[in-house]
């Protein structure tokens, strides 16, 4: 060891040892506070815990057997999934959650059930090939047309109507449960049930129905005749109930 520095710095060793001592003291202080803090936290964390040992919570055992000897190798406690943190809880989440959500929403958007009945898969409901008239809350003129297809998707159920406006074929989708669709009325039923779910062939010139204007006109006329006794409030079926053929999907 080199003694020269010691001789030049006679207090060097003392200083070093003092520094060490200081550091050690700080370290010790840290440790002490830490241990105390932990003890406090423990005491705070479970004041309600009884001092005696708790009974083991309910569980089953899962046995792991040896493949060759078929004897028990080991076993583990397996807790039941119905109990969560010692409290009984709901079992598995419901399966058909999308269906339930649709039902909830439909009940909210269509409390009378008229729209649901109009597009249900029943005899009296609207079918592809029928002529419908939809009153939209925003676009002034009601849109009438023949039903090409009904897309049933719960709350998102929609219907595709086709008409000719000025010799141009026009198709429009309407969301059945949307608030913007103010009313849906059956103008004319198809004489014979279509044997297709989607009447895409109606777009071909050979099968195209053309404009349904005359059908709508005739229907309005007949409604005027029927409703004339009640004060003639029949124009476009704004308020009154339609005839038997016109199942009103109106809710307002």
């Amino acid at each position: 060891m080199n003694a020269a520095p010691l001789a030049r710095r006679p207090l060097g060793c003392l200083k070093a040892s003092l520094r060490q001592a200081r550091q050690h003291r700080m370290f010790a202080r840290c440790m002490a506070t830490d241990a105390d803090a932990d003890a406090d936290a423990d005491a705070d964390a479970d004041p309600g815990l009884p001092t005696q040992q708790l009974p083991p919570p309910e569980h089953d055992f899962f046995r792991i057997t040896d493949r060759k000897t078929k004897t028990l190798r080991t076993a583990f406690a397996v807790y039941p999934p119905t109990t969560i943190a010692g409290t009984p809880s709901i079992a598995a989440a419901p399966k058909n959650v999308l269906g339930s959500l649709h039902a909830l929403q439909i009940a909210k958007m269509d409390p009378t059930g008229a729209r649901t009945a109009l597009f249900a898969k029943t005899r009296d409901a609207a079918k592809p090939g029928d002529v419908l008239m939809v009153t939209h809350r925003r676009g002034g003129e009601p849109f009438a047309g023949v039903v090409l297809s009904i897309r049933r998707r719960g709350i998102d159920t929609a219907v595709l109507l086709r008409n000719h406006l000025g010799k141009v074929g026009v198709e429009m989708w309407f969301k059945v449960y949307n608030k913007n669709v103010a009313g849906v009325e059956i103008v004319k039923r198809r004489a014979k049930r279509a044997r297709r779910a989607r009447l895409t062939y109606l777009r071909k010139p050979k099968h195209d129905m053309g404009s349904v204007e005359d059908l709508v006109h005739a229907w309005k006329k007949s409604r005027k005749v029927f409703s004339s006794g009640k004060g003639g409030a029949g124009a476009a079926g704004a308020k009154g109930k339609g005839g038997k053929a016109a199942v009103a999907g109106r809710k307002k």
Binding site: A45, Q53, P57, G86
Partner: peptide, 20 residues
């Protein structure tokens, strides 16, 4: 509120685990 027993349950499970 829903799981007041959580801590006690965990503690009991731990003790049981050490035993097993």
């Amino acid at each position: 509120e829903r799981f007041p027993e959580a801590e006690a349950h965990l503690q009991a499970a731990r003790e049981r685990h050490m035993e097993l």
